[in-house]
Design a binder for these strands. Structure first.
Lengths: 142, 142
DNA sequence: CTTGAACCTCTAGCTGCTAGAGGATTTATA
DNA sequence: TATAAATCCTCTAGCAGCTAGAGGTTCAAG
């Protein structure tokens, strides 16, 4: 029987986060001690590890919900899990492409800054005038 | 005199977002029409463009606040603006490195999935067992 | 039996918007 | 000048995915 603190340490998840996962139904309600404290077993430890690992790979909580559901039904075809992973891969690739464009632009800004007064600062100038940008970077928060 | 809708179209910013920027003090309170509607001038248009462009380059609203402040004081040294941009560049590079590791792992997962039952799904297996990962990817939400 | 660490619930906060309700104003046309 | 459509207003609440803190209880060691 594991306390929430132990689970926290074993998975590198904050205690509050574990309770949050329970609240949104991602983790099942665990058993309780006589005094009302949460007590976990190994299955729940595995589940939390799965969740955390998926989060580390960038999957959304919704995607993880689906993946967990699939994982609970061993006889279903795995196309769906595959599709979710492919979607995630695509997203990662899109984000990388975007960051690459940003990096180019930022490098250029920083590189051109000669360190005088802000009046002549290339960084600020570029920010003021989009047309100075050589690369495309048109979506916010992608 | 520009209405908020015009500003919205010219900068590609949602009307609510413009009001939000005003609320958090990023945009100044504009003048008003007799009936109480917001009316903007070109200086404010420029300011909003600056904000938007900075957002597109990934700067946080706090960073933008600093950049705007620097931009308003042409005689200050521009080290600070430079530092902010360098910080941003560093962040972008870190995120890229992280995404690269994720991509590798996701590719491997997807590649190895042979399309059978979920019981044998490599995607789910890898998620279950971190030790199967070849690359490091230890921070969440970076 | 006492102490202190870990637990409990509950509420509110973070970033950066976005959406909708319910109503007022502006503008174009008839 | 009247009216209708488009735009504007304020206010509140919601999204993801946690995180922090208040104020109080339980547990395990000594």
């Amino acid at each position: 029987m594991l306390t929430i603190g132990t689970l926290s340490k074993k998975t590198g998840t904050k205690v509050q986060t574990i309770r949050y996962y329970e609240q949104i139904g991602l983790m099942p309600e665990p058993g309780r001690s006589e005094g009302g404290q949460r007590r976990y077993d190994n299955a729940q430890l595995d589940r939390l590890s799965f969740i955390r690992h998926s989060r580390q790979l960038g999957f959304s909580l919704d995607a993880i919900r689906e993946l967990l559901d699939l994982s609970d039904h061993p006889n279903r075809p795995c196309d769906e899990a595959d599709a979710i992973a492919r979607r995630q891969l695509k997203q990662v690739e899109q984000r990388m492409a975007r960051l690459k464009a940003l990096r180019t632009e930022l490098k250029r800004m920083v590189h051109e800054c000669s360190g005088g007064r802000t009046a002549d600062c290339r960084v600020l100038e570029v920010l003021r005038d989009h047309s100075e940008c050589l690369t495309e970077h048109d979506e916010i928060g992608a």
